[in-house]
């Protein structure tokens, strides 16, 4: 590993900004940090705690026009251009991007997602502190795990230990003034893990448990858990009329929404809050692993922190492990 001093950070970020657009954590309001386009390297906050929205929207935007169509001009497809450096991605969020690849890159691949992924270099950032909601170690990663990133930074006194993991990452680091590192990799903060493999084994036996109904009592049916989740990817597609045609728009949606499965006839196979809450849980811990061989969760804890009524997925995992129908 090499060492990048705090003093040389600015110069490196400036060179990245010269090569493409730099997206990094920026403080927008007191207590609110979001991955944003960097205008000045001084805005970048690499000591951030968490962003409410993971960087998934860089590849799967909250809304995007799939195409515009008019009978006279045919299809117009928005072009995806330029190169992006996504900096400051914690290991959980880097895993989130990897998980998002499964649905969007499995055939037939979504060309928009594919193109954005191809044009983006992910520069990961180790976590020197864990938050109380963290449980990333349940998913084979950890606070200083560089997997799923093209290059990785570990904060150390006076700067960062840096490492390129892919050719893209090496290219991004080429312009950084690095020294041979003499500092050892710090010890990662403690993050408690949940045995999710064990959960998966027994989960289906609790599918019809009254647990879901009790948990759903306080659920609001909002979409916060899904929109802050690095691996939730439900979407909606609808048209907006234009003067002589249409614009077809894809937007984030969530299986937690009461209208999500309602058919035009009014029939809705998933009418209750309990069945919707259950679907999100089983998708992450049963259906997604069945389909793609990985859990649909990164342990980032955002849903724990941002749920307005504290539906804590870790409590659900523990309740299932205990085989209890009791509401935790």
């Amino acid at each position: 590993m090499k060492f990048l001093s705090n003093g040389n950070l600015r110069g490196w970020l400036e060179s990245l900004m010269g090569m493409g657009s730099l997206i990094a954590p920026v403080d927008l309001e007191p207590g609110l940090t979001l991955f944003s386009q960097v205008r000045d390297p001084g805005e970048v906050n690499l000591e951030y705690e968490i962003t409410p929205i993971p960087p998934k929207d860089l590849f799967f935007p909250s809304s995007e026009a799939l195409f515009r169509f008019s009978p006279s001009r045919g299809y117009e497809i928005p072009r995806i251009e330029g190169e992006t450096f996504l900096l400051g991605v914690h290991p959980c969020d880097a895993l989130g991007i990897r998980l998002m690849d499964f649905p969007f890159l499995s055939p037939p691949a979504d060309p928009r997602y594919e193109e954005r992924r191809r044009r983006t270099t992910i520069i990961g950032l180790g976590c020197v502190k864990a938050r109380p909601e963290c449980f990333c170690t349940s998913f084979g990663i950890g606070p200083l795990d560089p997997s799923n990133a093209d290059a990785f930074l570990v904060p150390v006194p006076g700067g960062f230990l840096v490492e390129a993991k892919t050719g893209k990452g090496a290219r991004a680091l080429a312009s950084a003034k690095l020294k041979e590192a003499s500092i050892p990799i710090p010890k990662p903060p403690e993050v408690s893990a949940i045995d999710v493999e064990a959960v998966r084994k027994v989960a289906l036996s609790l599918f019809d448990s009254p647990y879901w109904g009790r948990l759903a009592d306080r659920c609001l049916s909002c979409k916060v858990c899904a929109y802050v989740c690095p691996s939730c990817y439900c979407f909606d597609i609808r048209d907006y009329p234009t003067r002589d045609g249409a614009e077809r728009v894809r937007s984030w949606d969530s299986c937690q929404s009461p209208l999500f499965t309602r058919q035009a006839s009014g029939y809705d196979p998933r009418q209750t809050k309990a069945s919707r809450l259950r679907n999100r849980f089983y998708h992450k811990f049963s259906y997604f692993p069945d389909e793609f061989g990985a859990f649909g969760c990164t342990g980032c804890g955002r849903c724990v922190r941002y749920c307005p009524v504290n539906i804590d997925i870790r409590e659900t995992l523990s309740a299932i492990l205990r085989g209890e129908a009791r509401i935790a």
């Binding site: 979001l34 929205i53 609001l220 979409k223 929109y227 929404s257 307005p308 009524v309």
Partner: peptide, 12 residues
């Protein structure tokens, strides 16, 4: 501009 239309405001 930041609103993500998660409907939390409405649902709560």
């Amino acid at each position: 501009a930041r609103c993500i239309r998660c409907n939390a405001c409405r649902q709560i």
